[in-house]
């Protein structure tokens, strides 16, 4: 058996948690019906999962070059992934991709038609 320090054990646990949430995000990508619902699962779970993995790497390697790089990447992912989700959702709506049949309300479409 390897001798692991406490911070390495905690790092491994957090990395495993991140991978589990990434898996839920991917499962949502397959199971949910339309592009907007899929984006919901993809953005939330994959952001949290990836930030978790990077945080685990930081705890594992401590205050080294790798650790700082992981923290910087986590901050960039946290700031940019919601923005890309807005862009994809807006573009999908503009391109006229229909919402799923289970949708009960679409006030965005109504407002767009009012403006015409």
């Amino acid at each position: 058996m390897h001798d692991l320090a406490l911070n390495q054990i905690i790092g491994y646990i957090i990395i495993c948690g991140g991978i589990i949430f990434d898996f839920f995000g991917v499962l949502g990508l397959v199971r949910l019906p339309d592009v907007y619902n899929r984006l919901q699962a993809a953005t939330k779970s994959v952001t949290f999962g990836s930030v978790g993995i990077l945080l685990g790497v930081f705890i594992y390697s401590g205050f080294t070059a790798t650790g700082f790089k992981a923290i910087l990447c986590a901050i960039f992912i946290l700031l940019t992934s919601p923005v890309s989700a807005h862009a994809i959702a807006k573009a999908a709506h503009k391109a006229g991709i229909k919402l799923t049949d289970e949708t009960i309300i679409d006030l965005y479409q109504e407002d767009k038609e009012l403006q015409k």
Binding site: F24, L32, K44, L99, T103, I105, L107
Partner: peptide, 26 residues
Amino acid sequence: ELIKANFHVAYIVIHPLLPIKPGIVK
């Protein structure tokens, strides 16, 4: 809120019936 959101997504995705009621609101 981020942690809560992730457990919410996990619950929806694992649930066999996919309990969603989507829509766009203002």
